[in-house]
């Protein structure tokens, strides 16, 4: 990434950091509702939660519109127009990344927000661009993505466009099972 772009993104991230503030009451945890009509299928205890719990909110289209984290005893974060700025920063960062098409804006929003959180908490972390690029580099995988197609049977493999269609054979699944027994649970994402 060009040094000027790095500096520009850092300035925007620092400006965004200054917008992190205490969340309005509507974003604070609410007391649990004791509604017997809601079936409880599982209960997660503290030991089941890996890492820090970071609540986020979505809008009517399912897009994250607010993110929070705990700062000492307060819940702080970004919402509304401030969160929109986070999204714009992620979109612009995505356009500046080379190679292109390796990461989505949702992932970048998360990485940028993590930098904002750790920086706000005065943790020792890398510079903004290095931190986000590092997150991207460590997340990229190279390989084949197999998407099983329901109710489709083929006699032999063939290609259409950029896709190769192959049969998921018993041998393929046997191999998967053997790998799963060796490496579980790391394989299940």
């Amino acid at each position: 990434m060009h040094p000027a772009a790095r500096a520009n993104f850092k300035n925007r991230a620092v400006a965004l950091k200054s917008l992190i503030s205490a969340m309005p009451d509507s974003f604070l945890p609410k007391p649990e509702r004791d509604d017997p009509n809601i079936p409880i299928v599982a209960t997660l205890n503290e030991e089941d939660i890996v890492g820090e719990f970071e609540p986020s909110w979505t809008d009517a289209e399912g897009i994250i519109s607010a993110r929070t984290f705990k700062m000492e005893d307060h819940v702080v974060g970004l919402h509304g127009a401030d969160h929109d700025e986070l999204r714009r920063l992620a979109e612009d960062f995505q356009k500046a990344l080379r190679p292109e098409d390796v990461v989505g804006t949702a992932f970048l929003e998360g990485a940028i927000f993590e930098w904002l959180k750790r920086s706000t908490r005065s943790e020792s972390i890398a510079g903004f661009a290095d931190f986000v690029i590092g997150k991207v580099e460590s997340s990229v995988i190279e390989g084949e993505i197999w998407l099983p197609i329901s109710f489709l049977r083929i006699q032999s493999p063939f290609s259409v466009g950029r896709v190769e269609f192959r049969l998921i054979t018993k041998g393929f699944m046997d191999d998967y099972e053997a790998n799963l027994n060796r490496a579980c649970p790391a394989m299940l994402m």
Partner: peptide, 16 residues
């Protein structure tokens, strides 16, 4: 098992 799969070569973050 015994269905077809569409296979695409990718180098990217998994969800992307």
């Amino acid at each position: 098992q015994n269905t077809a799969a569409g296979v695409v070569l990718c180098a990217a973050e998994p969800k992307y």
